[in-house]
């Protein structure tokens, strides 16, 4: 079996995110540290679990992004992926999901993957579009928000449970090859092992430089980013810890909430 996992590099979730000067995306500050998108970690873990269950399985990790994104491909290898592919783009800040999906589709087409996995969405852009768009571009079946999967190699199908809402799961069976987007909580992502990280360090990634011709024109664009509007008064309590506690207690009493 051959599995492709699509991973994205995102800023650390506690990074102080600031807008860039023209407010088109965030400021790529030196101080920002980057990591693998949390939902993609679940996808990598799931692919490694499949590899462990079905010996002979090969897992390739792919990431589309600027030079620094190679780091997350290496991390995927550290977690147990066999090979890494980096589709290198310039550091444009925002990459349109259709462009990302097209670049991955360009790589995956004709490479006979049985399964393509990715996280349900990225923590930064939060579109949740690359997976289902990739499936459509490759004419493959797709299930999003997958919280359980079970492969039947003899019938070449995969049974999945999709988390929908409030404790309901949508169950379905897909014909392989298929694309799944993985929901958080499906497994417990492992830390990269030392031996795998050493291997990742020395292993050469396949690097593909994306040329502008590879990309469809974006159908939508970001005009600007801004800080969200407050939908409530958002009174900030001042003073020391005790003062804040007393103030909060007073407010809750006045509202007869306590």
């Amino acid at each position: 079996m051959k599995i492709l996992i699509c991973v994205k590099q995102v800023p650390e979730s506690d990074a102080a995110i600031k807008m860039d000067d023209c407010a088109r995306w965030i400021r790529p500050e030196k101080s920002i540290s980057y990591k693998m998108n949390r939902f993609d970690e679940f996808a990598v873990e799931e692919s490694v679990l499949i590899k462990e269950a079905f010996p002979g399985t090969r897992v390739d990790a792919i990431s589309v992004g600027p030079a620094r994104a190679a780091m997350v491909v290496k991390r995927a290898i550290g977690m147990g992926a066999d090979n890494g592919v980096h589709v290198e783009t310039g550091d444009h800040g925002y990459l349109n999901p259709l462009i990302v999906a097209s670049l991955i589709a360009g790589y995956a087409r004709d490479r006979q993957y049985n399964l393509i996995l990715t996280g349900i969405m990225s923590e930064d852009a939060m579109h949740g579009m690359v997976g289902p768009m990739l499936a459509e571009l490759l004419s493959l079946p797709c299930a999003t928000s997958v919280i359980f999967e079970k492969i039947s190699p003899e019938t070449e199908t995969i049974r999945v449970e999709r988390e929908i809402k409030g404790g309901y799961r949508d169950t379905l069976e897909l014909k392989c090859p298929a694309v799944l987007t993985i929901q958080g909580g499906i497994n417990k992502p492992r830390y990269p092992s030392l031996s795998n990280m050493l291997r990742a360090k020395h292993q050469k990634l396949v690097t593909i430089v994306a040329s502008p011709d590879d990309r469809p024109g974006p159908r939508e664009e970001v005009m600007r980013v801004s800080y969200p509007q407050k939908s409530r008064s958002g009174m900030v309590l001042e003073g020391g810890r005790e003062e804040k506690a007393a103030r909060l207690l007073k407010i809750l009493r006045e509202k007869t909430l306590i």
């Binding site: 800023p11 965030i26 974006p218 664009e221 970001v222 801004s226 800080y227 969200p228």
Partner: peptide, 12 residues
């Protein structure tokens, strides 16, 4: 970014 920012999009 987890709601830290909002983005305005327009289409062509």
């Amino acid at each position: 970014f987890g709601g830290k920012l909002v983005a305005d999009f327009r289409v062509a």
